[in-house]
């Protein structure tokens, strides 16, 4: 794996959307999938229970990949081949990885080009995998016992995303909620 200077990349302003239900979180994953192609890297940031795996389930369903998209915590990385001739989904949980050497040991760069790579807990580490990436931040309201939904923030980094309208992606989710 080569590490690159990530300081020079263009990062757009984040776009936000409310996700009142797990179905909305899944719908955001589906809407993202429509924009994704082989080689793309998506970083998911958010606490336990923020909806990272739920979003990836929607994304995997829309990509048409094989196997149950479940939490990758135990196995760290799980590859789901496409059933429709599209890119595979590589679903990673970086929570326990201690640093770049351990991320490197997963050999993600060997599958990066022909897959869509989704990394949970990847903030601060997985940026080294690619110059271009989509960062999705999921926030859950804390301190209240009842479920008051989530808020997602999308932020695109690098030229790959220059022409992608993030607002249009989240608009699909907003529409679905009405």
């Amino acid at each position: 794996m080569t590490t690159r200077d990530t300081t020079q990349q263009a990062a757009g302003d984040p776009v936000h959307v409310q996700l009142p239900s797990a179905a909305a979180t899944r719908a955001l994953g589906e809407a993202l999938a429509a924009e994704l192609r082989a080689g793309d890297l998506v970083l998911l940031v958010g606490d336990l229970g923020a909806g990272k795996t739920t979003l990836t389930q929607g994304l995997g369903a829309a990509l048409g990949v094989r196997g149950q998209v479940a939490s990758p915590t135990f196995v760290i990385a799980r590859e789901h081949p496409s059933t429709v001739g599209g890119p595979a989904l590589v679903h990673v949980d970086a929570y326990r990885l201690g640093g770049l050497a351990e991320l490197d040991a997963l050999d993600l760069d060997s599958t990066l080009e022909e897959s869509v790579t989704v990394v949970e807990w990847g903030g601060g580490l997985a940026e080294a995998l690619a110059e271009d990436r989509l960062e999705v931040t999921l926030d859950r309201a804390r301190g209240a016992e009842e479920d008051s939904g989530r808020r997602a923030g999308l932020r695109a980094v690098g030229p790959r995303w220059a022409d992608v309208d993030l607002a249009a992606i989240v608009a699909v989710v907003d529409e679905g909620e009405r």
């Binding site: 915590t73 135990f74 196995v75 760290i76 990385a77 929570y95 326990r96 990885l97 201690g98 351990e102 040991a105 997963l106």
Partner: peptide
């Protein structure tokens, strides 16, 4: 020490 399995 990692809090779980590390494949390598």
């Amino acid at each position: 020490r990692y809090g779980g399995i590390v494949p390598e």
